[in-house]
Computed example of a mutant assay.
Amino acid sequence: MSIDTLGLREQKKRETRQAISDHATQLFLQRGFDRTTIADIAAAARVAKMTVTNYFPRKEDLALDHHEEFVAGPAATLARRPEGESALAAMRREYMAALERHDPVIGFTGPAFARMIAESPTLVARLRELHDLREEALAERLTAETPDDPIGARAIAAQLAAADRLLFRELQSRMLTAPDGDPLDSIAAELAEMAHRVFDLLEPSLGTAAIR
């Protein structure tokens, strides 16, 4: 099989996955997550039910399509941070950059999508689980950097994760009340002020901790 054929096959897989995700999102917004079935999504995307579950083993993954990036994000930020930068400084820098680009991974989902999540106990529970996994990945990264102090690494990860959860929830709450089509710049500015306050409060305890 040629490289070109492999490339076309991978492109087709990506297109199929994206089409399934797009149709699922439309149905979730129209009907609600819990009232939409895998069969509904398969019919809308014109694929077999098995094809949907092959790409998305969990129905929640169809709604929270950035879940892998969400879980790995903070740990990846620390892995990329330059020598001499603390974990707190890296997290602050990345969060402020994500605010500027209105990154959906940190909560810029739009009002309709935020309401869809809030109205589904299944998705609310899945988000809690993803936050736990996110903290665990962060702890594992810090523990790998300081294997002689695993409890210290986990304590730092817990504080950073708590700040991360707080900012995510604050942004989601503003998404819930924002009018559809409302520009996001004002929300981003409000969250930027809040984020600086949160990270400043952590500075005395974490400012010189976990420096690469």
Score class of each variant (00 low, 15 high):
R154W: 04
A87L: 09
G152S: 04
A98F: 01
A125R: 14
V105L: 14
L133C: 01
E136I: 03
R197P: 00
P57N: 03
S2A: 09
L201F: 05
K49I: 08
V105M: 07
E68K: 13
E85L: 10
T208F: 04
V198K: 03
T25R: 12
D40T: 10
I41H: 02
R154P: 06
G181K: 05
T53R: 11
Q18F: 02
E190S: 11
A39P: 00
H66I: 05
I20M: 03
K59M: 07
V198S: 04
E68S: 10
G110N: 05
A155L: 14
E85C: 08
G7A: 13
L62V: 07
F70R: 11
A162E: 12
A90L: 02
A19N: 13
L27H: 01
Q18K: 11
A89D: 14
A43T: 09
P204V: 08
L99R: 12
A192I: 01
H67Y: 15
A125E: 15
I151V: 14
L167N: 03
E140M: 05
E145S: 09
D180E: 15
M175E: 15
L8N: 13
N54D: 12
D40S: 05
I3M: 12
A189S: 14
S21V: 05
A139D: 08
K59S: 03
T109Q: 07
L142K: 10
T177S: 14
L184M: 10
G32M: 03
A189V: 04
L167T: 06
I106T: 13
A162S: 14
L99F: 12
G7V: 03
R115P: 00
E85G: 00
E10L: 15
R169K: 07
R128K: 12
T77S: 08
V105W: 01
D40P: 06
K12L: 13
A112K: 09
E140A: 07
I3T: 12
I156S: 08
Q30C: 00
E60L: 07
S21F: 02
D148W: 12
R93H: 13
P147D: 08
R93G: 14
L206R: 11
S120P: 09
N54S: 11
T25H: 10
P57A: 05
E190Y: 07
G32L: 02
D65L: 01
Y95R: 14
P121R: 03
D185F: 06
F33T: 03
S86Y: 05
G84D: 05
R174V: 01
T122L: 09
A178Q: 13
T109N: 01
G207I: 07
L167V: 07
M96D: 13
G32Y: 01
A89N: 04
F168Q: 05
S21H: 10
A90K: 05
R81S: 08
R81C: 08
R80E: 15
A158E: 10
A90D: 07
T122E: 13
S205T: 14
A89T: 06
A158C: 01
T177D: 07
